[in-house]
Design a protein around this nucleic acid. Structure first.
Length: 915
RNA sequence: GGGCGAUUAGCUCAGUGGGAGAGCGCUUCCCUCACACGGAAGAGGCCACUGGUUCGAUACCAGUAUCGCCCACCA
């Protein structure tokens, strides 16, 4: 491509659109399972089809793309597999809201029509986030796009379900589960978010049946559930209460009596009154206590979470109260029940009490523990190998700190409720014979699976069974429930590669290399992928799990639409450029920490992009038709030797950082190198040479400049793909795109300590001269008379070689002097390490500033020197510190002493001049 | 209640057993022929507190305080 005239300011929009399309058209991201190279694969954490790109996606995607582009450039056979998740509850909610706006509902539509409606919606809107990922530059193999409800993936889901069932790891049972009364479905334990709220602890007196004046006082946060009580428990060794065990109590507000049982597990003698009401159908602890004592379970709520009139009758609630309470939500019933108890003098005490409230993670409705028949995965046999895989290092979690989090969670894992009473999702591949299970016929009329007793035997298979093995009939209904979305996500690393078929892609890229994800789905997703991956492929699904931070706003709050503190990545990409946003996110991706994103930071990296852009303009302007030839470094001018050395070092550093997943450090080193070494010093050093015309040195410098800059684009490319492609294409280059150019490796032959040492001296001199210029208030156009010298002959020789650089950058006439030739008059002597700089004072100058400055520095250095002397004179230090440390301290003290003597000389002279 | 993490410049954050760092912001000078989204020079910090280990601690250990996150059925 011919080099274009580059604008003064980098304009990202057109550039991004052009190259983004070019990459796709050229198929650069397509991965071939038969290609050469060691495989490297990442499967994307599939965003919800309902999703729109938020800043968390942007971070997640940027990190994956950096890894992918880096490995692709290194010649690995690299696959980044994209896709989306059907997100059962979330998606169903979105479409249901649409229906509500149309004054209809999914029930009115019917199941098949509703599902068709969701598919229509998915076809229309489901690609939004994919387009947004493309805009971010995500170099996915879009030809391998997958969706969790694709035919292939659905087959994998059925296959896994059937095999788990065959292996006895699935069961259906009536248990207490978390129920969302708005979504009308069961949720798994982790789909409940706990929130701390201020509640009340009610103390209620339950009279003894035979001695109504006596009784037990129970403490509860939910008095309205007392209608579901089927016992009261006390601690068997509690002397206050244990004599009552075996007797019975009158359940207030009802005509029932309930037994007093002894239970050491449920009851904490220290808490409350030492007596606990047991409500097996509405509390997880009570459910287990109920199991232990074979208590009946009395569910008093409807599936919409309201007090159930029929159940209240069954619970023998007093008729008047029954009518008042029926169909009330628990929160409304609670004060009414308390009031009624108060009226009867049964409410003995009410305390303020903080309690945890469980909410649905999709709609934030308060969830209810609810009794219903559900499908469960027996997780322990799956969890054990998943624990071992991490413990034994087959899977590495980065940063390491999260490992214990993972292990702790896995060890305490309870069975996983995987049935959902919604319609959008993978339908459970279980069928009931309508002859053997007459209740199953109700499903045909739209009833839920709850109508089928748990004793019924489902037939689990890939397809509708042909004949019932028990009764030889052939009429079946399928279980109406669908499987938890996270179940299909758990198969993602292998189902997307064609499993259960042994495809070429599966053979090549499975197990995948790295999984990049946020902490928020470590349990939802990562843990389950490991469990099911190990179970079905006998291999961990990935080698490394990189867990990145959560992006928060500048105040550290979680971003959410309701708080209005969302930083929209799409807006920022338009405003500052995609590369600037990517570089920002990479820079802030420090391990184990949340990211507080502030817009200033993005603007800063936009400026960085512009800096690179202008360096490119400069370089192209001065390229002079030169090509980036590779003459031996030793033959090149000093500045070229130096920048080659620095480039090799930074290349090495960046590769190391990327290997360690330290994107923040890699970005930091690149930023510093580009701006403060390449632009501030190298380009400035070579400017005079570029003016020279067609000399040998100038040609060499042009070649080096182009060579290093081209290499730098490749180094930057994983972080800033668009900008670097645009520049690379404008530079002399070979190949069609930077995307498939090799990623730079360090070149040890370029590393040159001698050149770096010379540079350090130049830098010191120039900085010192500029400081002196500012102190003496000589304007930039004043040409100074500069004297330099050094402590040893070697450094004096370097000064001699470099004097034209010092003269150019310091804007002055430079004389390199021997130390004994150093003048004493009308010279400002300035800070130095190994070198001494003097600026000849010419004409009338205000020296007060300079004197004040020298005075201040003198004091600081005297303190340092005193500190060092104290340390060096300590016998313990001499005896115990390492020789290197001792030597270093001695060297530093010697330098300080030299500087201080200079300072004092300077001081005296300047004082004399002032007076 | 358990676990984890944080506390360093005005702000956002790196960092290390021996001389306190970056970006942004701030001050001064400069529109010097790549870049004012720029250049140069600066100001600014008892590295949360208290003990301990050490010749030496911002760093390692313990405790305290504050903040945050995750997990948790104590009614």
């Amino acid at each position: 491509m011919a080099s274009r005239q580059l604008e003064k300011i980098y304009e990202p929009q057109a550039v991004e659109a052009r190259w983004g399309q070019y990459w796709l058209d050229q198929g650069y991201f397509h991965a071939d399972a038969d290609a050469q190279g060691q495989p490297y694969a990442i499967v994307i954490p599939p965003p919800n089809v309902t999703g729109s790109l938020h800043i968390g996606h942007a971070l997640n995607t940027t990190i994956q793309d950096i890894l992918i582009r880096w490995h692709r450039m290194q010649g690995r056979n690299t696959l980044w597999l994209p896709g989306t998740d059907h997100a059962g509850i979330a998606t169903q909610n979105v479409v249901e809201r649409q229906l509500m706006a149309e004054q209809t509902s999914r029930e009115q539509l019917g199941r098949d029509a509703f599902i068709e409606r969701v598919w229509t919606w998915k076809r229309q809107s489901g690609d939004t986030i994919l387009e947004q990922l493309k805009r971010l530059g995500a170099s996915c193999d879009w030809s391998r796009l997958r969706f969790t409800m694709d035919d292939g993936l659905s087959r994998a889901v059925r296959d896994v379900f059937v095999r788990l069932h065959q292996d006895g790891l699935l069961y259906r049972g009536e248990r207490l589960i978390n129920w969302c009364p708005r979504c009308l479905t069961a949720l798994s334990d982790i789909e409940v978010e706990h929130e701390s709220v201020q509640g009340k602890l009610y103390h209620i007196r339950y009279p003894l049946s035979d001695k109504p004046r006596d009784g037990l006082v129970v403490a509860t946060t939910r008095p309205e559930t007392l209608f579901g009580d089927t016992a009261v428990a006390v601690h068997p060794e509690d002397p206050r209460h244990n004599r009552h065990i075996g007797r019975s109590l009158r359940l207030p507000l009802t005509g029932r009596t309930i037994p007093i049982v002894g239970d050491a597990i449920l009851v904490n003698r220290e808490f409350g009154t030492g007596a606990v009401k047991i409500t097996p159908a509405h509390d997880f602890n009570d459910f287990e206590a109920g199991e232990r004592h074979h208590l009946p379970r009395l569910s008093i709520l409807t599936h919409r979470g309201l007090l159930n009139a029929d159940a209240l009758r069954e619970a023998d609630v007093e008729p008047g109260l029954r009518d008042t309470l029926a169909n009330l939500p628990p929160t409304s019933a609670r004060p009414l029940v308390a009031e009624e108890l108060q009226r009867r003098d049964l409410l003995t005490q009410v305390d303020e009490y903080p309690m945890a409230l469980g909410k649905c993670y999709r709609c934030k409705t308060v969830v209810e523990p609810f009794l219903s028949p559900q499908w469960f995965v027996h997780v322990q046999p799956l969890a054990d190998p998943a624990i071992a895989a991490v413990e034994q290092g087959h899977i590495r979690i980065v940063p390491e700190g999260w490992t214990n989090n993972y292990l702790g969670w896995m060890r305490g894992l309870k069975d996983w409720c995987i049935s959902r009473q919604i319609w959008w999702g993978h339908r459970i591949p279980a069928w009931y014979c309508t002859t053997c299970t007459p209740e199953a016929r109700a499903i045909l009329d739209g009833a839920g699976s709850g109508s089928i007793p748990t004793q019924a035997t489902p037939i689990v298979s890939h397809t509708t069974p042909r004949i019932c093995p028990t009764c030889q009939q052939a009429r079946f209904v399928q279980d109406p429930d669908v499987i938890d979305t996270w179940f299909s996500s758990a198969l993602w690393p292998f189902s997307t590669l064609g499993w259960p078929d042994n495809t070429k892609a599966f053979q090549t890229w499975y197990p995948t290399s790295t999984l990049v994800t946020g902490l928020d789905i470590l349990f939802f997703w990562v843990a389950r992928m490991i469990m099911l991956g190990l179970k079905f492929t006998h291999t961990p699904p990935f080698r490394d799990v990189y867990i990145h931070a959560l992006v928060r706003d500048a105040e550290g709050r979680k971003m959410s639409k309701s708080k209005g503190n969302v930083i929209d990545p799409l807006t920022k990409m338009s405003q500052y450029g995609t590369d600037a946003l990517r570089f920002t996110l990479a820079s802030m991706a420090s391990p184990g920490r949340d990211i507080r994103l502030s817009e200033d930071r993005i603007a800063g990296y936009r400026n960085f992009a512009n800096k690179i852009w202008n360096a490119a303009r400069f370089i192209l302007m001065h390229a002079g038709g030169q090509t980036p030839a590779a003459t031996p470094p030793a033959d090149r001018p000093f500045a070229d030797q130096w920048i080659l050395s620095r480039l090799s070092h930074v290349t090495d550093t960046v590769n190391g950082c990327l290997r360690d997943y330290r994107f923040d450090q890699a970005a930091g080193h690149l930023y510093h190198f580009v701006w403060h070494e390449y632009c501030d010093w190298y380009l400035e050093l070579i400017k005079p040479s570029l003016q020279e015309g067609d000399t040998v040195a100038a040609r060499s410098t042009r070649a080096t400049m182009l060579h290093t800059f081209e290499r730098l684009q490749r180094l930057l490319h994983p972080f800033m793909p668009f900008l670097t492609e645009e520049i690379w294409q404008a530079l002399p280059h070979q190949g069609d795109s930077i995307v498939r150019q090799p990623f730079p490796e360090a070149v040890p032959a370029w590393e040159n300590a001698d050149a770096e040492r010379t540079f350090a001296i130049i830098e010191q001199c120039v900085t010192t001269i500029r400081t002196g210029r500012a102190l003496l208030e000589y304007g930039p156009s004043t040409v100074l008379t500069i004297l330099v010298t050094a402590n040893d002959a070697d450094d004096i020789a370097r000064l001699h070689d470099a004097r034209h650089h010092i003269a150019h950058l310091g804007r002055g006439a430079v004389s390199v002097l021997a130390q004994d030739a150093w003048p004493t008059d009308r010279v400002l002597h300035l800070v130095v390490g190994r070198v001494t700089v003097g600026i000849t004072i010419d004409g009338e100058v205000d020296l007060k500033k300079a004197l004040a400055r020298i005075h201040k520095q003198t004091q600081a250095k005297q303190q340092d020197a005193a500190h060092l002397e104290r340390r060096l004179s300590s016998p313990d230090f001499a005896a115990k510190a390492s020789p290197e440390v001792i030597q270093e301290s001695k060297d530093r003290l010697a330098l300080l002493t030299a500087e201080l003597s200079l300072f004092s000389r300077s001081n005296r002279q300047l004082q004399n001049m002032v007076s």
